[in-house]
């Protein structure tokens, strides 16, 4: 049993355990952090396969940026959902208690509280759909692995960055340029959806930089979120 097998077993257990915790932990912020751990384990698997640039990309984009984005998305949701409490319409966040985002999670967190019958039935359907999706995924992966001819050629690739760069900028130049358009679409779409109100003509002095010093009434950083929580 060589050390690559040991590393693969360790990473496999890490990925499976953290992935299981992502869907079972009652706190959604912890779920995001377990997701980051899962991504890190996948980066380790890429390293074992000899894909060093892909591993670095996995850490940089998925562990760094995507997890940050997920945590930001959690911070945008209303606090009772984050804490797993029943969403109150009269909470300080105001607005609709958007339950459509994750009914299964919300009910799991609620514990033994009284819940409507419709939600119970909906949760059952969600479970059935999730089981079907998981089975379909396992079947698809089985088909893929059967045709892949494992074990794959690994650790004989050498440095992968230069051939990868050659491939991206010659054979796959068009997908590379399309990627920039996709990123542009995501950026413009998010801006269009979130910036609806014009900048408020507030009387407070504009504060440059995220420093806590010298902010009169409105402090930058986390307190600003509290100050703006009424705005859509």
């Amino acid at each position: 049993m060589n050390w690559e097998m040991v590393a693969f077993a360790f990473l496999g257990v890490l990925i499976l355990a953290s992935g299981f915790r992502v869907i079972t932990t009652p706190r959604i912020v912890h779920a995001a952090l377990y997701l980051a751990l899962c991504f890190t384990g996948v980066a380790g698997i890429f390293l074992l396969l000899g894909a060093d640039f892909l591993a670095a990309t996995q850490v940089l984009i998925y562990v760094g940026a995507v997890t940050t984005l997920i945590i930001f998305a959690i911070m945008l949701s209303s606090p009772p959902e984050v804490r797993g409490e029943p969403a109150r319409g009269s909470g300080p966040g105001g607005g609709e208690p958007a339950r459509g985002a994750g009914p299964a999670r919300g009910d799991e967190v609620l514990g033994g509280g009284p819940r409507p019958e419709g939600v119970q039935a909906e949760r059952g359907w969600v479970g059935v759909l999730a089981a079907l999706a998981a089975l379909g995924f396992v079947a698809a992966m089985g088909v893929v692995y059967r045709g892949a001819g494992l074990p794959a050629q690994a650790a004989s690739l050498g440095r992968t960055t230069a051939p990868l760069g050659r491939q991206i900028f010659t054979t796959y130049a068009i997908p590379f340029e399309v990627a920039s358009v996709v990123l542009l679409a995501a950026l413009v779409g998010a801006i269009y959806l979130s910036v609806r109100v014009p900048p408020r003509p507030s009387g407070t002095t504009p504060v440059s930089g995220p420093s806590h010093a010298g902010a009169g009434g409105e402090m930058p950083g986390e307190r600003e979120g509290g100050a703006n929580r009424g705005t859509p």
């Binding site: 990309t57 960055t161 900028f169 998010a190 986390e222 600003e224 979120g225």
Partner: peptide, 27 residues
């Protein structure tokens, strides 16, 4: 655990977009 303004999401998304650009710049 207050509700943050949607502006922060745009900062995150801008970071993600230019992070991906950096990854493409390296090869």
């Amino acid at each position: 655990q207050i509700r943050y303004h949607a502006r922060y999401y745009l900062f995150g998304l801008l970071f993600l977009v230019f992070d991906i650009e950096t990854v493409f710049l390296y090869p």
